[in-house]
Simulated assay, not measured.
Amino acid sequence: MHTVAAWNIPVPRALQKISNNWGYSPYNPAFRSGLIQFERADHLLNRRGISRGRVTPEVLSALRAPIPKNRFPFQWIKVDKSTHPEHLQIWQVPPDPQGKGQWIYRTVVNTGVMHSTPDGSWPIYQRLAKTTMTGKFPIAVSPQQYHLLPASDRSIYHGYHVRWQHYTAPNVHFVNYFYDGRAIHFYPRKGYGWPQSAGCVEEPYKNARKVYALLHYGDIVSVMGHYENHKSNLVTPMTARKLRQKILLEFAHS
């Protein structure tokens, strides 16, 4: 396992630790990352095409031809929920064989409420300068309220009784999709640094524009930890309720 996960470039200790558990399979994030970058470098997909990093007949056919050189640096995006404020960092290793890795950018971010931004590692599979997002936002309700809702509008979500509020968010800028509709992107908030989204990783405008310019297809995004699990960051139930209400109020008026 350690041989499979060995890197031939300098990587942070945190990336080495999590990659030791990836194993050798088509679901390995680094394997999928390479396939996605190959599809882009060999123009197998159009600009708005979506790559899931899978071995397709088109990929196999293209692999018989000369392989285009990957001109992009290696980049790893670490989304850290283990401290408050939550933040994102980018690790970069230049394509030069002698290139040394370093952290090149950091920004405060928001992740999803009720643990809706799960821990894990995935490659960026689609990038859009602007798009419209639709989905459902989980709103915590009491068990009594839960049983009064139609079955289609409720569920148990990560241990919470919730009702689902449909939303449409037009003109979302600087979007980098990495897992099941979740993306790193700009979203307007009064503040940043704690869970507020429906699952995406939200950034302030200027920071999101900078991150969008730095990232490219296939970059691996790792979501790690959760600050609510740390004793130093625990909040009282009353504070948690006030924070949740503030988040929902901002969402309703955004």
Rank of each mutant, 00 (worst) to 15 (best):
T3E: 12
A5R: 01
I9E: 05
R13K: 07
A14W: 15
L15G: 01
Q16I: 11
K17V: 13
S19N: 02
N21V: 14
G23Y: 11
P29S: 08
A30E: 09
L35V: 04
I36E: 03
E39L: 02
L44K: 10
N46I: 12
N46V: 11
R48W: 13
R48N: 13
S51I: 03
S61V: 13
L63C: 12
K69M: 15
N70C: 11
F72K: 08
F72N: 09
P73M: 06
F74C: 04
F74H: 01
D80R: 04
K81H: 06
H84I: 14
P85V: 08
L88H: 01
Q89I: 05
W91F: 08
Q92K: 06
V93G: 10
P94K: 04
P97Q: 08
P97G: 03
Q98W: 09
G99H: 01
Q102M: 05
Y105T: 13
T107K: 01
V108F: 07
N110I: 01
N110F: 03
H115R: 10
P118Q: 15
S121P: 14
S121W: 01
I124C: 00
I124D: 00
I124Y: 00
R127E: 10
I139W: 01
S142V: 12
P143C: 10
H147V: 15
P150F: 04
S152T: 12
D153T: 15
S155C: 07
Y157V: 04
H158D: 08
H161Q: 07
R163H: 12
Y167E: 01
T168Y: 12
A169Y: 06
A169S: 11
V172C: 01
V172I: 09
F174C: 02
N176Q: 03
R182S: 08
R182H: 06
I184P: 00
Y187H: 05
K190C: 15
K190N: 12
W194K: 01
Q196G: 08
G199I: 00
V201A: 00
K206Y: 15
N207E: 09
A208I: 03
A208L: 03
R209Y: 15
A213I: 02
A213C: 00
L215C: 13
D219N: 09
S222N: 06
G225M: 03
G225R: 00
Y227M: 12
E228H: 12
N229Y: 07
H230T: 11
S232R: 10
L234K: 14
L234E: 05
V235T: 06
V235Y: 07
T236K: 05
P237R: 11
P237L: 14
T239W: 13
L243Y: 04
Q245V: 10
Q245M: 15
K246L: 12
I247P: 02
L248I: 15
F251M: 08
F251E: 08
F251Y: 14
